[in-house]
Design a protein around this nucleic acid. Structure first.
Lengths: 191, 191
DNA sequence: TCTAAGTGCTACATTAATGTGCCAGTTAGT
DNA sequence: ACTAACTGGCACATTAATGTAGCACTTAGA
């Protein structure tokens, strides 16, 4: 929104298309050329350079867009207020949706200081939530510190990519269930 | 082994160093240049080209090396014979160790037909094992088909990368425990 | 309808990586 | 100690991507 300042409507459309196309292509090949991205988006290579001063800037914009979606999902989950079970599910659902719209790998280009700062903030929020969930008895307390926090992103990412037939909400069902109960059958000898 | 035919000892050392260095660097940046890899391995760029006809061939060799390690781990786990709980743990431990030695991303370059064939075979073995584990009551039977099989690789990969202080065996403890029991606390109202 | 904003296209300079050839020097293994 | 194998370093051609410039054309929006 804020990026599309006093921009003409068609230009804004092109820009959005460029970002989403870029995200998709960069996700499956981080070294995708600007020419290839532009071609797939149906725009001229030159148009990209009119919008972004360099390749780096395009990447940064894609990452910004992804973080916008992620932050929105976190906000919508109300991690600090909603009941832990509800918040967890909503969080997972939101991140899965965000991962599908912006599948770009986060592992690259943490060099961007703005991104690192936003990331730090998000991590703090999630950690605080997980702590609360542990205190309220939703999560086990005997696991290596940070294990659940570290486990969540790849799990959600995996569900986003590999359960294409399920809606974000359904995929979140599977993820949360798997996460909390595991995939092991209850022991026959258990009380 | 078979690759190092009638090769001089120092050449074989260089080759191994080149492969492991290449795997590490390509894992964190798939577009790492041959010059960079060679430099990090302490060899001249020209030496790489004497061993491999092209960049593709170097990549292929790295992938082959990874699959060697993975296949060895699967074999050692004896997925078709050992008790399911034991086999699972040994499998996870072996794959974690392999992931650490050869952290290279498998998602790229499945174009190699030889790799795809080996991959197919491995997948079949693991699927058969998981089916057996389900039949023998180790795993829940009410999950989406293929979900556990799809869940395992990212889990193991994640543990290999993000639990550096734990030995492969310890990391396997955490992974198997998490996988089977989940991270949720038992319900207070549970029987 | 009129203008400014935006696009497509061609051309060009620059950089970086790939892959090859050659030669002098060094080292492994007999 | 001797030879074949191997290496390092330089130079070179080739390819591909980045980033810039200018011009003619189209379209959104007042």
């Amino acid at each position: 929104m804020s990026i599309l300042g006093g921009m003409r409507a068609d230009a804004a459309r092109n820009l959005e298309l460029l970002l989403s196309t870029g995200a998709r292509m960069l996700a499956e090949d981080p070294s995708a050329s600007i020419a290839a991205i532009a071609a797939r988006a149906g725009v001229d290579r030159r148009t990209v350079y009119r919008r972004f001063a360099s390749r780096e800037e395009l990447l940064a914009a894609v990452y910004q867009a992804r973080y916008d979606a992620v932050e929105q999902a976190v906000e919508a989950a109300r991690l600090d207020q909603a009941p832990v079970a509800v918040a967890l599910h909503r969080y997972v659902e939101g991140i899965i949706a965000a991962n599908r719209t912006w599948p770009v790998e986060t592992s690259r280009l943490y060099a961007e200081e703005t991104i690192r700062e936003r990331r730090r903030h998000l991590i703090d929020q999630v950690n605080a939530f997980l702590q609360r969930a542990t205190h309220e008895g939703l999560l086990r307390a005997d696991l290596p510190p940070g294990w659940v926090a570290a486990l969540l992103p790849p799990l959600m990412r995996h569900a986003a990519e590999n359960l294409p037939d399920l809606s974000p909400a359904q995929a979140a069902d599977v993820v949360v269930d798997t996460l909390l109960r595991g995939v092991g059958a209850p022991l026959p000898t258990a009380r």
